[in-house]
Nucleic acid binder design. Structure first.
Lengths: 333, 333
DNA sequence: TTGAAAGCGCTAACAG
DNA sequence: CTGTTAGCGCTTTCAA
């Protein structure tokens, strides 16, 4: 590019530039910029004028490096930002962070352990003040050096592996148990439980919770609503069909709702997770609900208590679930 | 605290520590850590061993300050992280960022112009490489110095004010026009348009687009589903009721669906925004759909093209909408 | 191929 | 109250 082409020099003004322009020392500029006390109004005015004229803005990088203070940034590693569950967690964490004048870097692991590790270590390099992690892998030992040097880590939704750290979980097992008991109370004895994979912590807990309540028919590999619909169809067409279904997540629940509605079936349905518009589903259902925001909030609060210096042993918080009636009570068709 | 209480010194090892331990110079450590060429394998091994033993991790703050390179961070300021619309935008932006080895700081303005300004300037201090902004205020002139010094800014969903910058919008006006025309084609002549506030850019565009297609009855102040339901009830109970409703966002749409269902009304409904589970709504409806992810993706791609040096004039991208049939086709009741 | 010295922009610790 | 000096941890010269 032609250096004479009139582009403003892309170099940002520094405190030295401001000091020169205002005719004061750099330290005075620093004091004014940081609202330090004991500066003459006269100098304050001159500095602020120079700041405005030059378009100066403190370089937070240099500030953080020199002062050794916190970056006022925390990291959140989740599976998928667009998923409403994680989005709600992120929003709650961001709000707690804001109360501590801290910003949130959110990144998706996409369930990939390598990616999770890469992201977490990158965040460590950036010297975040703390880490909120929905584990995608079973081993987080690679974080141990960082934790030993004072980096607080909180796991949420699932326990982390190979690292002692605060953890916030849902009562998956208890919720599932309650859900199946609810069906038993209504007289159901043939109950089918649909789940995706037992390798996912929450799913395993939920299936086991269901089994604690009653012997049930379990069916895995249900990874999306369409599969759920197909599986329900097959079960209802088979001999001695289930009179009730228990779903272990809301994607499965939605698939079941659709299929039961299409068939005009009156089979009962209890599903883990509430979801938006569940009250407008075309048939009644019961959901196992919980406070997703609380998950993020509790985790973030725990994190900041550590950042603020709390040194007690690792804490485990388990959040309760509750049953709610959902769906339109007039049957469609 | 007792200094002898066995806590590991919270001081992180630096390249100096690693160099000392490996018996090499700091510069060699730097070379190894950064995978620079021309280092003897022997030294590489010793340095890596020392790195592992000490739990060294490069201080990204110092790296960024000294090298003057990008922070590999971009900022996204939206209204509300938990809202699926913004969550989808954030996910798309994060994915594009990832392709550029960049992390995303997401912050909510909560529609508060002061908070928006504070957040944006904070992000500038942190020397993010670029800014993605869903405007909450009408004037972003305060960003001009930063933009002049080379900070790329892209507005999305709404135009920014007082600042020339790339912008990515939806075709709100055209979508609304198409929606109302769809109702006209079906023979409807008494069409009610429900909206929240004309001070919101997208809402104003949508209402005006509807009016471009046909004279309609407009009703503002509809800020949530319950209000929408109440308003619909009042309209249907009045003399000469509308035969069709046009909703300007999905919250209003959901409220209308519920009320029409409760009344068993066969009034037609077209709503701006598609939404999750719209296909399971207990009555037919038509939605004006668009690719929310594309909004975030286009904006982020535009941002990175600027970060990578593109210097053409400000660009405006408008994304298309399309009509889709939703809802269960058997009427509930 | 390796190292010594300087310095990124800022603030801590002094001295005045 | 204000200024000078040194240095955060790293990378960029530039010698060796």
């Amino acid at each position: 590019m032609d250096p004479r082409s009139g582009h403003k020099p892309p170099r940002r003004p520094t405190m030295v530039d401001v000091a020169y322009r205002a005719g004061v020392s750099v330290k005075t500029v620093s004091r004014v910029v940081n609202n330090a006390p004991y500066v003459q109004q006269d100098l304050i005015d001159r500095v602020l004028a120079a700041v405005a004229e030059l378009g100066f803005r403190r370089n937070g990088i240099a500030h953080t490096l020199r002062s050794g203070r916190a970056t006022s940034t925390i990291g959140l590693v989740i599976e998928e930002i667009a998923n409403p569950f994680y989005a709600t967690i992120a929003a709650a964490a961001a709000e707690v962070a804001r109360q501590h004048d801290t910003l949130l870097i959110t990144a998706s692991s996409e369930e990939d352990p390598d990616r999770e590790q890469h992201l977490l270590l990158d965040l460590c390099s950036r010297r975040v003040d703390g880490l909120l992690v929905v584990p995608a892998s079973l081993d987080h030992g690679f974080l141990r050096p960082e934790v030993q040097m004072g980096l607080p880590v909180v796991f949420l939704d699932r326990p982390g592996g190979g690292l002692e750290a605060d953890t916030v979980l849902l009562d998956n097992r208890g919720g599932a148990r309650d859900g199946v008991r609810h069906l038993l109370d209504q007289g159901h004895r043939r109950i089918a439980v649909l789940f995706d994979s037992l390798r996912v912590y929450t799913m395993k807990e939920r299936v086991e919770g269901a089994q604690e309540a009653s012997p049930v028919v379990v069916q895995g590999g249900v990874r999306d609503p369409d599969t759920a619909a197909r599986v329900v169809g097959e079960m209802l067409d088979a001999a001695d069909p289930p009179t009730a279904f228990f779903s272990t997540n809301n994607r499965i629940t939605v698939g079941i709702v659709g299929e039961l509605w299409r068939r005009g079936s009156d089979a009962a349905l209890v599903g883990f997770d509430d979801f938006e518009l569940s009250h407008l589903m075309p048939r009644p259902l019961t959901v196992i609900s919980y406070d997703t925001g609380a998950l993020g909030r509790e985790a973030a609060q725990l994190l900041f208590s550590r950042i603020d210096g709390s040194r007690s042993g690792p804490r485990l918080v388990t959040l309760p679930t509750r049953l709610l009636q959902r769906g339109l009570t007039t049957v469609v068709g």
